[in-house]
Structure formats: C-alpha cells, structure tokens
Design a protein around this nucleic acid. Structure first.
Lengths: 353, 353
DNA sequence: TTGTAAGCGTTATCAT
DNA sequence: ATGATAACGCTTACAA
C-alpha cells in the first residue's frame, strides 16, 4: 500500500476480434442438422443416438468450438458444482494452506471453490454466508465466528451442506473437522513442566474463539495436573496478532517475577514474541523457553529454532472437503450422520526449549 | 499429511428440519396475490408499482424468507458476478496476499472470487482457464505459464476480460499488472557493488518464467554497467524452491572462489539459503552478504535480518482487480484500451548486507 | 433413434 | 399500475 510508484503503459488496441457471441447448443444442433435435444444427448453422452448423428454433432461442436454453458446447466441441474469457503483471512499461511488443500480436493471432484475473508467480523461473515447461499454454492466450509453459530445451524438445518473447519458449533449439531487444541496445549505445557519450569506464561489469542479458549484450557489442565497455581499475571492476550503479542511479551518481562517459559497460541504471535525477546536481549532457550502453537516455515531458520505444536493443516483441509463433498452428494438423505472429526497435534521439540 | 491420528465422533442426527425447497419468486407472488412480474419489479426495485403492492410483496418475501436465486439471475443477465483467479500456488504467501487483495477489491464491487492452483503446470492452467470460461466467470486474473500465452490471447480476443498479474504476455496485447523486476534486481546488485563486492552470485528461479528471467536480466545489467564479468559459476538455479536453493547455495560455497554476495530471486529460496549458510557456519552479513527478492514476515526476526527488494504485493492485487473490473463493466466497447501497469519495487536494507 | 416441449428461476418487453 | 409472456441455455420426460 505504501509504494505508489508505478509506470502505466497504455497501448491502444488495434481492434478486438469480432466478439461474436458464444455458440449455444442450438447453434450446434442447427449446424449438425439435428434437434437441440439430440445434440444435448450426444454431447452429454446419455440417452441413445446413432453413430451417424454422434459424428455430425461432434463435428459441429468442434467446428464452432462450442463450450457448454455452466450457469445454464447449474440452473437446470440445481447444482452449481462450486463450494464456498469462509475464513478469517486467507493471507495467513494457516488459512492459505487449508484453502490450498480444499481447492485440491474440490477440483479433483470437479468442484469450483469460491472464497470469502471475514477478519473475524461476524457481520462480514454473515454477508458471505448469505450471498453464497443465493444458489452460488452446493456446500459451505466455514470457520465460524462465535456470534453466528445460530445462523449457521439454521442454514445447515435448512438443507445446505456445511462442515465447519478448525472451529465447531456447540452441541455437535453441525459436522466439523478440528484440531485437538486442548491436548496440543497440554503437551506443550507438560513438556515445560517436565523440564522443571513452574513459572509458565501463556499468550492467548482472542477470547471467545474456540481455538484460543481450548488452548488456554489445555494450559490450565497441565498446570492443575501438576499442582501448579494459575497466576493471572502469566495469562496474557495477544489477539492472534504479532504486534499485540510483542506488547504482551514485553509486559511479561517487566513482571517482578517474570516467567521462565512462555506458551504462545499461534505462529503469528510467536514472531512478535521472538522480536520482543531479541529486542530486550533475553536469550530464548536459555533465559526463557518458548513453544508456539502451529508450525511454520521460519521455525527452523530462526535462532534458536522454534519448538512448536504442529497441526496437520493440509490434512485437515482435505478431510473437511471430503466430508463436505460426501454431504453434497447425498443431499437427499433426510436422516443424516453428523461427523465431528478431531485431529491430534504433535509436539515438535527444537531449540527454543 | 504425516499425522494421521484423529478421533471421529459421530452423532446420529435426530432429524433434519423439513428441508422444504427454497421459495421462488412465484411463491412470493402467489402469497402476495400479484403476478410474478410484479413481484420481480418490486423486489428488483424497477418499473412502477403502487405502494400497496410494494408492501404486499415485501411482506410475502419476508414471511417466506425469500432469497433471490443467483444462478437464475446470472443466466438471465448473462453475468455471473464472479471473477476467476488462476495462479501457481495459493499457499505461497505471495499469492495468498494477492488473493486477499483481489477478494477485498472484488467483494467491494459485489463480485465473488473463484480460485485455481496450477503448480506451474500448464496443463492444469489450461483446464482451469477452460472450465472457468464455461460461463462461470465474468473476467479472469491469470499469472500465465509461458506455454499458454497464445491460449490466453485467444480467450482475451474472444471477448473475455483478462488481466495478467505478476507476469505478462509478450507484445502488450493483454492488460497486465507487474513488478519492475529488472529494476528491483538492478537495485539489489548495484547495492552489492557499491559496497565493494565483485564476486556476486545469483540464485535464479525457473528459467522461462518472466519474473525469474527479468531478475536475472537486472543482475546482468548491474554487473555490466560496472564492467564486472558475468561468471557462469555464479549463476545458480533454485527453481523458486527452498530445498533446491539450499543445494544451490551449497554448491556456491564449494566453489574454489566462492562468491562474497548472493542475490536470491525469491523469499522461499532465501530461506533455503539461510539454512545452508547456517549449517555451514558461514556468517551472513560478514562472510557472505545476502539480498532476497520479496519481503517476508520472518525477514526481521531472523539473525541477521534479511535485506530485500520489497514488492507492493497487496497494491498489485488491488490494481489488477480494479483494472479487470473496469474491463468487465465496459464489456461492450469493441475498441479497447490495453493497460500494462508496471510497479516499482523498493530496496530495504537490513543486516544481511 | 429422434424430435418436441416443459421446465429451472429469473428479467424485461409488450400489451392492457 | 399490472399481468402475460418470451427469453436466458440447458436437461430430460414423453411421444413419435
């Protein structure tokens, strides 16, 4: 946004080729000398027709370079063959990876993917859900904000296939694919404890968002299991943002009794924490140990390398999409099975602890 | 993909609410006791109608919670109000950021965004272009692979609005938004030279892809301008991949006369190079200077921090989308202006050089 | 095997 | 101001 310098080279076009409108099935039929229905049959490869007409139609289609019109088909078949994905922010690697997984999976089955970013704004989320549901999608993958749970339930109950991803609606009433955040956090904090740490801080994400709340639960559980008191001083909020986490880390350092270990609830915030500690000459892995939730590319090139709870991100996307496609394809069954899949995360120890 | 552990909680659903099919305009009209056309007029807010019918129709629509059917509208209006984006890989931050920018811009104008990943495979690219053009999109944003230039020209000439992004088709015959890669690379290498370096290596991306070729051109230009010979030993290929770049860096180190500075053609490869140098106890910024093309989050937390050529990624996405939308909305003009916008990159000096 | 025609859910023109 | 009705481009049941 900052860099506004650019050159604009404008070329006046000589002429655009005759933008004649695209040929329709009717054109093909006419050219082939058969009826519209006949043409549809051979191009759609169903019904019966003589090899003679088959050839005539195929030739005509080729000559006109006919392409079937997806929208018209969609209307007739009551299926757009596209699915929608609504998430907080696709430029976050986590979501980018999930989107990639979903698109891979969807395209394999001939589905298109349409995306929407909400920035955790439930109003935006609502808008996307609404417009996507205006016939544009056959199914929905959504990572719902806490405020829209009832809306999503309603949409699901009205017959639109949905599977929530990375977060779930209370009561198991909508299919979901999630990570076991409690267990992941528990593993991380338990590891700290096993190394002798007692003063363990957490930098949470956004309260009310399932992943953040559950990671905090896992943190609490580990401390409680080992009879360690949970000090409110050690519970900081980073809102899943780099800068906020930087601040939070600073405040932790300024405590009269600073923690000896910090569990950071996502990678973006882990970046902020690294920076805060580096800026204050605190040696990570020596003065303060660190574990982040979520693996990332840079974890291995930063010094010391970052230990983390690795989530099976790509797999999560694939499973969610497969679940959804299954629903989409069984759309008729009134009495459905609701799958709530929960995947385990894995603790990866590197040098930051 | 590696972590296959997961729990599957299956809940049998009590019953799905009567999945009655969605109300149509006809239903609304019936309920309101007016004709279908009338209902369409008030809901579409055009034509004329009495305030009485207006109220009746609006009430009926609300009571039935009627939503207009996007696909049907699209068919009638010959516009899907969605644009398509085809790129190499959305899970790469560069593309994720661009996609975000485009989606922001598109949604602001009421357009949906549908995406496709090609992994630089021209066959996949072709498939996406083809299916997207089956009426699904009103316009296309493409970062074309070298093999599909003629296909893209053809599609463009046939009347489908296209703007290429980050790469362009030879001959300025299709609108584009790109970065001035030659200048960016030139800045980086010139900086090396001004610091006294003579033995400057480059780790290129994929030959034949515009961004890689142009960055190499910029490298050559800087060397030539200062009368420095281009040594083939110093020209390595990293294929835009972390691992390949790691290898390439290793080979550079093993040269009898290793370079004193390396220019790396993207951030992914810069990661590989960092790792290679770290693994071999080569001190970056001391034994070997480094500049990468493309800014990244981790550039400031890695030690030493990474100098780089920063591209205005988000802006590029916005400009491309705005260009495209302009084309989409003037679709009728036979004689069009072809904009080829080229944005400047900016050298950011940190501690790696 | 083939043609006819009735939709799919809209918009928009043409009478009235 | 309102109601018919013809598209949009396709699929498919029904007749022939």
């Amino acid at each position: 946004m900052t860099n506004k310098t650019f050159a604009k080279i404008i070329i006046y076009n000589v002429i655009l080729e005759d933008a004649m409108k695209k040929p329709t099935l009717k054109d093909v039929a006419n050219k082939a000398g058969v009826s519209l229905g006949m043409a549809s049959r051979v191009l759609g490869n169903y019904g019966s027709y003589s090899s003679d007409t088959k050839e005539k139609v195929e030739n005509a289609a080729r000559d006109l370079s006919y392409k079937k019109h997806g929208i018209a088909r969609s209307l007739k078949l009551k299926s757009s063959r596209t699915i929608g994905m609504v998430m907080s922010n696709i430029s976050n690697v986590f979501w980018a990876t999930i989107t990639r997984a979903i698109e891979d999976c969807a395209s394999k089955s001939g589905y298109h993917l349409i995306v929407g970013n909400t920035d955790e704004d439930f109003k935006k989320e609502r808008d996307y859900l609404e417009t996507f549901c205006e016939g544009y999608v056959d199914g929905l993958l959504v990572s719902p904000s806490p405020n829209n749970h009832s809306m999503i339930k309603k949409i699901y109950r009205s017959g639109m296939p949905i599977v929530t991803i990375d977060r779930k609606i209370g009561g198991f009433c909508v299919p979901s694919v999630t990570i076991d955040n409690i267990d992941g956090a528990y593993q991380a904090v338990s590891h700290f404890i096993s190394k002798g740490h007692r003063d363990i801080a957490i930098i949470k994400g956004i309260d009310g968002i399932m992943t953040s709340d559950q990671r905090f639960q896992g943190y609490c559980k580990a401390l409680e299991m080992h009879g360690i008191e949970i000090k409110t001083d050690y519970v900081a909020a980073g809102l899943f943002q780099k800068e906020k986490a930087y601040q939070a880390a600073l405040e932790l350092l300024q405590l009269s009794a600073p923690p000896s270990a910090i569990f950071v609830c996502n990678e973006t915030m882990a970046m902020g924490v690294y920076k805060a500690l580096q800026d204050n000459q605190v040696e990570i892995g020596k003065h303060i140990d660190l574990i982040g939730f979520g693996d990332t590319d840079w974890a291995t090139i930063v010094r010391p390398s970052l230990s983390c709870v690795r989530q099976p991100i790509y797999s999560m996307g694939v499973m969610a999409c497969e679940s959804l496609l299954r629903l989409v394809q069984n759309n008729d069954t009134q009495e459905a099975v609701i799958e709530n899949i929960c995947m385990k995360a894995e603790l990866i120890i590197r040098n930051s602890c």
